[in-house]
Nucleic acid binder design. Structure first.
Lengths: 141, 141
DNA sequence: GATAGGGCTTCCTATCATGGGAAGGTCAAG
DNA sequence: CTTGACCTTCCCATGATAGGAAGCCCTATC
């Protein structure tokens, strides 16, 4: 299986497969005589694992840990659960933060006529400067 | 007011002030004879505006638009409201996505004993490959 | 067997917002 | 005049992903 087929089979782009190999997330794939990467079904499984974990929002660092736990068949499930729970906590915190932002903005928007007149509480609020104790912005997608 | 004082007064780091100037988000600050940047209270207001907008999760692109609307005192509030509402919609969509992730993970975690035994539904699920119709991952903070 | 096309390889670049740091100029207090 | 805190510019790094260029390889068709 060459990299294109592996990409199709796993849902991970060829670019990303090379990247994962480069950063050591997956082991370096075997090579054919002509230097093409050659993937086994085991490799595909790893890629699918990664793909699924990414879709659940795990960071590459968390995935690194999960992968090594996955490969270690005698690991205690406690460790895996710890990573997952930590991630859930993190997700919920970010959700709460974003909800606070959305609610604050909705409120401002409700107060804005949204017509031809220039008066706008949204801009007024933004101009008021950093509000006390407000959630700090997080980088966006 | 030099850049350090401007940073303290606005809550935006000196690094970021230079960056905002570089990308044209704010106009280039005046310079003293010794080439130091010199900020007026008006500049500080702009920076505070940006800071507050960032804390509400607006992207730099949105902020660019909001800033120009803010400076245009005859703009219709409709335009501002449109940007804000669009942002709220976007936020709520991302919230829903993240909640789906968190819920899915919580469910898996609940099924995991979290003890010394290696059996773990979390890893089993991840190994099952990309699930059908699952929300796709978004980059993280 | 030659040739065309598509796939593979590596390497470089960019994104977006932010921070770190080096090298060198400037200012204010002692 | 020295010292230390500040300013300047310039370069590099992050994380995950994508785009592209140059060149090699494989397969199918003529």
């Amino acid at each position: 299986m060459n990299i294109g087929q592996a990409a199709a089979a796993s849902g991970v782009s060829a670019k990303m497969i090379r990247y994962y190999e480069q950063i050591g997330l997956i082991r370096a794939a075997d090579r054919t005589d002509s230097n093409y990467r050659s993937f086994s079904t085991r490799d595909i499984n790893d890629l699918r694992f990664i793909k699924r974990a990414r879709s659940l929002g795990f960071s590459m660092e968390e995935i690194t840990n999960l992968l090594s736990l996955w490969r270690d068949h005698s690991r205690p499930s406690r460790e895996v659960k710890a990573i997952a729970d930590c991630h859930v906590t993190d997700l919920r915190a970010r959700i709460a933060e974003m909800r606070a932002m959305a609610d604050a903005l909705s409120l401002l928007s409700d107060g804005c006529a949204g017509d031809d007149r220039p008066d706008c509480p949204i801009l007024t609020d933004l101009a008021a400067g950093p509000s006390r104790g407000q959630a700090t912005a997080r980088p966006r997608p």
